[in-house]
Write a protein that binds this DNA or RNA. Sequence first.
RNA 1: GGCCCCAUGGUCAAGCGGUUAAGACGGCGCCCUCUCAAGGCGCAAUCACGAGUUCGAUUCUCGUUGGGGUCACCA
Length: 490
Amino acid sequence: MKIRTRFAPSPTGFMHVGNLRTALYEYLTAKHEGGDFILRIEDTDQERYVEGATDVIYNTLKTAGLNHDEGPDIGGDFGPYVQSERLNMYKPYAEQLVKDGKAYYCFCSKERLDELRASAKEGEVVGYDRHCRDLPQSEIDEKLAAGVPYVIRQKAPLTGESTYHDCVYGDITIPNEELDDQVLIKADGFPTYNFANVIDDHTMGITHVVRGSEYLSSTPKYNALYEAFGWEIPTYIHLPLIMGKSIDENGKEVVSKLSKRHGSTGFFDLVNEGFLPEAIMNYIALLGWCPSGEFENREIFTMDELTKAFDIHGISKSPSVFDYDKLEWVNAEYIKNMDSETFLSHAKPYYDKLGISSDKYALLEEILKPRVTRFTQIEEKLIFLTNYEEFDLALFEHKKSKSTLDSSREILNEVIPSLAALASWDRDSISNVLTGYAEAKGYKNALVMWPVRIGAAGVAVTPGGCAEVLILLGKDESIRRLDTAFKRLG
RNA sequence: GGCCCCAUGGUCAAGCGGUUAAGACGGCGCCCUCUCAAGGCGCAAUCACGAGUUCGAUUCUCGUUGGGGUCACCA
């Protein structure tokens, strides 16, 4: 049988990387076996509706490379794929359950439920007291006729225990007393998330339910529904949570479910910070899953390779901490392995901002590639091109190069004219002048490179070496700056 | 608090009764070197604790501790 998985996000306008990783694993679970990956929008909560939020979902999946086979935007044989367009489907199923004695009308008011909870003792948590579970039929008819608002609740088993199998966690057993008579249809006639989920997954032919481990303890309730309908229970794959590390008010280090306090957690937030979509996906794939076989110890994967390598048995059970440092490293790997065209397409906006001409692109790529871990760093790396302040002359002193104020003065004095006389301003020409001079004087290259680079850049740290700095600056600007620096040295 | 789940270095993690307990990020050191990177080499750092099973436990069982999750007319 063909595997079918689904990603069922709510349109909140924000895609948490935790949700995205779930989507990734859903996609990989299906695609590894040549199955289908379905997108379903769960928008039954009218109050939380956010304008344009579904577009965020489409854009995220597209940018992330998770192409769905069926969904609201592309259709499919199991539509509609938006829950609000399926609204009339759910209630008949619930009514059927009532008829079969597996669910019941509950007329309890919100106030009564609130009181119930308020009456709980300190630290105690109480569920619904099943007040309406066994109402006499006459009373039910009466209330229905009188138009008393009601919800439909599932009759959960009262005794014994429920066991089910999960591909990651193994057999899970829960005492049935723990199971609440959950609401299936709300007073407004809308289905609850849990109920709609089961109906949709079944009617859409979902074979593998992949979701976060927070659903581990409520799964028996889902299964009770499948059983009540006589439907086949799907294969469950529960995923470990993604955590974040932070410092609490007592200065203690704590881990908790990844949230905004830990930094950027939205997919597009990370993209805006300069993380490449491919790198983000690559990194989160490795958060909670470890490749094996021919892919053992592999760190960098294309989506196709991930699809090939993905294996449910490699999924870990314990929660993992999101490590921004490692993400940064993965991102840097992607940058280093980029072809020139791709590199330029990412770097160009920053080049344009600095007014860099296209003849510098090749050199820039060469020196920037090993030095930026995110493209957003380009501007600061090249700041010396546009800023040339009255820097501290102490920069000319460098112990390892044996450079001093005096040596700098002498070298600049003798080297500037030779540079100015150069007909061709390229790497070889510049290097030949400088190393030739060093050789003639019996100096180490470092001794002459240092003051020239510092004099031209005005900062201690530059991407690339002396010749590269001079080329990026251009001949006129280089000579002008070196003259200025020389004069300041007196 | 009840219930469920989890437990190898700072982090991601391999391991599936006998290993010098992989690898990666990060850290540190060395090399290279005109700075910063990149690259190369190397170092430090892990089986939470206590019983039991076994000739032998990181690995199996139980308990303790710790962590996480969950208990809505939210999704």
